[in-house]
Amino acid sequence: MSNDARTEHDPFVALQDSPEFADLRSRFRRFVFPMTGLFLAWYFLYVLLSVYASDFMSTKVFGNINVGLLLGLGQFVSTFVITILYVRWADREFDPRAAALATTIGDDHR
């Protein structure tokens, strides 16, 4: 079992308190939480539109295809787009920073 005396020198706690780690986490939160809120809002908006804007939703775009149907299919497409955005962001922004942090801390601790 660890004790309080040891905890003071715990590399994990040191890492937790380091500005680099805080930066990494806040970057993640700043990207992920708003995005989650935004895409849930978009799904919920669709339900509202179907109920309260049924004229708009039943506007014919071409043939028997109306706005509602297109937006409905758009739900699947947007799910996919959101996932792509996240994967790209993680590959481009998050992983390199995490790897950089890994090298600094890893050297201290090995």
Binding site: Q16, L24, R25, D95, A98, L101, A102, I105, G106
Partner: peptide, 12 residues
Amino acid sequence: MVRLHTPEDLAL
């Protein structure tokens, strides 16, 4: 928490 939020390649 550090463990949960530190990418795998971190050598801890």
